[in-house]
């Protein structure tokens, strides 16, 4: 953190670089934002102005009415949160064990993780669907939770292994020498160090469940149980027809929870390691 203080030129350059990144990453959101407030006429206008001529909330009301957005958001939230809790709770101890206890399991798990990610997901959809149908989970959010959890688990395991490996084993051993039990070591030493990794992993799980479209499309028929991406698809018609205004409004509404969630949680990406853990 002290490094840039020494160089007075570095700081402005860093802000400049960050600004460039932000333009690249956020510009489409600005575009979405302005589109959401435009009337259909303005959107199709051959000479589009960047900003909408007036703030017009018709698209938002249209989006909410047409697609029952709030119900969909509630369903998505329930699904994504449950998935995230399950995946995190299951993958954390497993990842730790796989790294620290060097059993043959690790090779098996690694092989399986890679296989499950390399085999095109689109091709396992049908067998997965048949399986869920056999156990009566078609048209349920629980079915979605199971699929999303199973799909995110390999990732979570894989990434968490990376984060566990990055923690110097000496820290744990120092703690063990001090007489702390393994469980205590886990909670007091490893967990805080892993916090940023856990945040990154659970964020990933949350957002992927939040955004998943195809399996939800196939599994959910009941309109009361549709998730957000399904609701968004309502605005896309045949042959590239799109109801742009309402779609932009709905997409905006749909991505706000993710962004708020991240805004709240991003601090945790720094919280892990400010006090000297080595001396612990």
């Amino acid at each position: 953190m002290t490094r840039s203080m020494r160089n007075p030129v570095a700081r402005p350059l860093q802000y400049l670089a960050l600004l460039a990144y932000m333009c690249f990453l956020a510009f489409p959101l600005v575009f979405l934002l302005t589109t959401a407030f435009k009337t259909d006429r303005e959107i199709r206008s051959p000479d589009p102005s960047f900003l909408p001529r007036s703030l017009n909330f018709d698209n938002f009301t249209a989006a909410i009415e047409r697609a029952d957005l709030f119900q969909a958001a509630a369903n998505s939230l329930l699904t994504a949160v449950t998935t995230t809790v399950i995946v995190t709770a299951v993958s954390l101890p497993a990842a730790y064990a796989l790294v620290r206890f060097r059993t043959r399991l690790r090779a098996v798990a690694t092989g399986w993780i890679l296989l499950s990610q390399v085999f095109p997901f689109i091709l396992i959809i049908i067998p997965l669907f048949l399986l869920l149908k056999d156990i009566g989970l078609v048209n349920t959010l629980l079915g979605l939770v199971l699929v999303y959890a199973v799909w995110a688990l390999p990732f979570a395991l894989w990434m968490l292994q990376g984060y566990v490996s990055a923690i110097p084993v000496e820290l744990e051993e120092a703690s063990a020498v001090d007489g702390a039990g393994r469980f205590k070591t886990l909670v007091k030493i490893v967990l805080p160090l892993l916090a940023p990794g856990l945040v990154a992993t659970s964020l990933f799980t949350f957002i992927n469940s939040w955004n998943e479209f195809f399996f939800a499309l196939v599994l959910i028929q009941d309109p009361d149980m549709q998730t957000l991406p399904l609701a968004l698809a309502r605005f896309v018609g045949a042959e590239g027809q799109v109801q742009l205004g309402p779609l932009a409004a709905a997409a905006l509404i749909a991505c706000v929870p993710s962004l708020v969630f991240f805004m709240l949680i991003q601090k945790r990406l720094t919280a892990g390691l400010l006090s000297g853990a080595v001396k612990g």
């Binding site: 499309l217 196939v218 009941d222």
Partner: peptide, 23 residues
């Protein structure tokens, strides 16, 4: 009445026909 979308109806039906859950 269930609302579907043109964009995905084909894939949806392929899977649902396989599973016997088509509308």
């Amino acid at each position: 009445l269930v609302q579907g979308s043109w964009d995905n109806v084909h894939d949806q039906l392929v899977t649902q026909f396989q599973g016997g859950t088509a509308p």
